[in-house]
Design a protein around this nucleic acid. Structure first.
Lengths: 128, 128
DNA sequence: CAGAATCCCAGCAGATACTG
DNA sequence: CAGTATCTGCTGGGATTCTG
């Protein structure tokens, strides 16, 4: 399958199709917390409570859930140290680093474009 | 503001902050339908019913809503031709093209990585 | 420390019907 | 043709409590 088939053609796997298999992967990556978890892991592996403290507003439930989804997709690796009390750390896999790179690229673009976007919003809001 | 501040530092505008102003822009871009609308507009301007037909499963309500959000953010431009019956066409702005480029880059990566991700899922699922 | 289990609600999105 | 309006249901996610 060519890469371009994802966004161009009416191929079997076009994103435009209702049953596109890339959809759920995309949703996992762009869900409310995934970007933040991936970005927080970019500098290196982190433990559960470090992630919780770093990511403002995330609940333990959502952190746990997000980490498990990312682990299942092969983007994050979970390591348990056999000590008492248990220490669990998370790190990006190669796949996870690639995903994080794309997402952070998008975030950087948003940061750079935010002023323009805010200006557009104001003029849109003022015109009605 | 430097680009890196978005994803690295604990600056005022870090994505990790609860009130990060980039959050809602990100959510607009990665909402359920935005990617598909932006991708569908990439080859050139399209009319409402063309978009509706191209994007499988979208309702007129969600298409209309998504287009308005994108227009408000300055990513899409709406043009009404003064004829009967009315003809309305939509096109990407420069900002919209940039956003679409990032998103389609991500989708292409997903397409290329999907086999690996699916393999990861299977081994994860089988191990419990 | 690192979660799992449960309850609960707001808001997104679908279906349907209507209109300039 | 290109929408809007209204209703309704579903689920993502928060708060709280409990545990190996």
């Amino acid at each position: 399958m060519t890469v371009s088939s994802q966004v161009d053609a009416d191929s079997e796997n076009s994103v435009f199709r209702r049953d596109c298999p890339s959809r759920d992967i995309f949703e996992h990556l762009t869900g409310r917390w995934s970007l933040l978890v991936l970005a927080a892991l970019r500098p290196g592996s982190r433990r559960f409570h470090q992630l919780r403290d770093r990511i403002e507003g995330i609940s333990e439930k959502m952190l746990s859930q997000t980490l498990r989804t990312l682990e299942r997709d092969g983007l994050v690796e979970r390591t348990v140290l056999p000590v008492r009390p248990p220490q669990v750390s998370y790190a990006l896999t190669r796949l996870g680093e690639e995903a994080a790179r794309h997402l952070c690229g998008l975030i950087s673009w948003i940061g750079a474009s935010a002023p323009e976007i805010r200006t557009a919003r104001e003029s849109w809001d003022n015109s009605r």
